[in-house]
Each structure stands twice: as structure tokens, then as C-alpha cells.
Write a protein that binds this DNA or RNA. Structure first.
Lengths: 157, 157
DNA sequence: TCTGAAACGATTGAACA
DNA sequence: TGTTCAATCGTTTCAGA
């Protein structure tokens, strides 16, 4: 996949915004030692080049009443229907993540439900209703120990 | 887990910010038909009550050079070291998510690596170096079909 | 819980080094 | 790429309903 040239200042900008998407550009500017307008221009470039995909508020699912988080591995009868299956999965709002994977399953999804009953109806009435699914395995997350973003500094320093 | 009373306006505010954490409060105010000050007060309340955990810039891992995304299921020899193991996993920057789960594994992590070699060294030199790990299984994500946030409207309307 | 007003700070675009 | 400047717009707080 195409890459983009990102220098130390870009990485610093990303690092700040990855932990707080609403950090004022002027505050970043002060920390980076350049002007606010320069930060603005760099962020615009990062945005246009596709490095920045967007920003999100992070909410606590449990506080909103979603007490159950689960991962489901999905095995298809026939890999040719992979894309159609993804489209069907996308229509299920409880599913927040969907991956193509190697190994025992073809697809792997993450979802949030209100309770176990909600998980069961989502699995049985919505997911298993999709034609071509051979088997599934559900892994219930008892607790999310942590969740964070990529550590940009892992890269070429 | 404790829940909080959230009305339709709160849900509308969250809905906007979940897809764009930098949306100006005044714009939300216009869409909700109340003043900017009221939006500010509501967001402050949602923040203080723990519904809002923070905000994040979403970056494309591939654009930053992280070509490999994987999930690893981890089985421990002894569940009593669960918390210590989480602490050790937290120190590995490549790991972005860590769950306690039911089933075949005790822990389940998501990580990003630069390439397969990086994945292998992270697994062998860092993860398997943690004492008490019995077995692991790695699922490589060939592609993330989609990733999004909880759909707030799943709830009580 | 809302509003409007006022003060302050941030964003954005243009012109230029 | 960077800078400064100026206009516009957003944020935040407070008093009061």
C-alpha cells in the first residue's frame, strides 16, 4: 500500500491528535515550535494524502448500556461470497469491526450488544440469517483491559 | 456497570461527535436547535459522568507503514497471573487492544506491525517472552473491511 | 436546563520569504 | 515549507430566566 513521507513534526502532530482529537492547533503549534498556520497546512496535507481518515469521540459502551462485547469468527461455505457477506454484516449496526483473516475463519467481527439476549438474537436472527455461513465461534470479551491507537513512534525515528 | 440518563439531544450530540470529534459545538448547536452554551454544558456533563472517554484522530495504519494487522489469542498456564500479563502486554506498543475473553483463550490482543518479520519478532521476542503463557494463536487480518463506532441509536428511542 | 452577551482564543486564507 | 496578518468563527464563562 502506498506510503507518504512523514517527518518528525508530522509525527508529533499525529501523536497529539491521536490522544486528543480536539487539541487546539495553536497548542500543538506551541509544542512544535512552529506557527498555527503551518500546523494547519500540515494537517490539511495529511488529511488530503489519506493518512488521516477522520476523528472520533470515544464513548464508554457500558455507560450507554452496551454491556456485552464479543468477537465472532465466521467461516464461509464458499469464499466467493466474501464481499457480499461483508455488505450484509455492515448492515448490522451492532458490528463495529470486520476483518478478512487467515486461518480457521474467513471473517472476524467485533460487536457490542446490550446484554446476552441481545447478542443471541443478533447472532441467530441477523448474522446466521446471512446465506453461506458455515460455522461461527463467539468469543465474549469479559472486559477490555485497554484500547488505544497505534504508537506512531514505533516507526523510523 | 453504572448507567447515566441520556436524552435524545445527548444522543444526537454523541452521534455527531462519534463520526467527527472536531465538529464545532456551534454547528452541533444549530443542528440540535439549542444554543452553543447548552451544548457545551451537556458535553461537559457527559465528560464528567464518564460517558465520554476522550477523542482520537483516526489514522490509516498502512499509510504510516504498518502493513500487518493481527489478532492473537493467548492462553495462560495459570489464570492467577492475568493482571500481571496485561501489564506486560501494555508495555508492547504494537498492541492496541487487549481483552479478557471466555473460551479457548484467556486474553485476546490486536496489534499492528510494519511487516511479517516485525510481527514475528514482536510475537517471539516480546509476547512469548512473558512468563506464564501456555499457547497462542495468531490470526492475521488480511484487510479491515470496516471499522466504526457504536451506533448510539441502537438504544432506547 | 436553557439563553444571550462578552471576552478570549482558534481557524483559515492571502500575500510573501 | 514556512511566516505574519487580519477577518471570521468558535469556545467558554457568567448572570439571569
Amino acid at each position: 500500500m502506498s506510503q507518504v513521507v512523514i517527518d518528525a513534526i508530522d509525527r508529533k502532530i499525529l501523536k497529539y491528535l491521536i490522544t486528543n482529537a480536539r487539541m487546539p492547533f495553536l497548542e500543538i503549534a506551541r509544542k512544535c515550535g512552529i506557527s498555527g498556520a503551518a500546523i494547519h497546512q500540515r494537517i490539511k496535507k495529511l488529511d488530503e494524502s489519506g493518512v488521516i481518515l477522520g476523528s472520533r469521540l470515544v464513548v464508554d459502551p457500558k455507560m450507554l448500556g452496551f454491556d456485552v462485547c464479543a468477537y465472532i469468527g465466521i467461516r464461509l461455505q464458499d469464499v466467493s461470497i466474501l464481499m457480499q457477506t461483508v455488505d450484509r454484516l455492515k448492515q448490522i449496526p451492532e458490528i463495529v469491526e470486520c476483518h478478512f483473516i487467515t486461518g480457521t475463519y474467513n471473517l472476524f467481527v467485533k460487536l457490542y450488544c446490550v446484554d446476552n439476549e441481545h447478542l443471541m438474537t443478533t447472532l441467530c436472527d441477523r448474522i446466521l440469517a446471512i446465506p453461506g455461513i458455515s460455522t461461527t465461534q463467539t468469543y465474549i470479551s469479559l472486559n477490555e483491559a485497554f484500547q488505544r491507537q497505534i504508537y506512531v513512534d514505533c516507526l523510523h525515528d
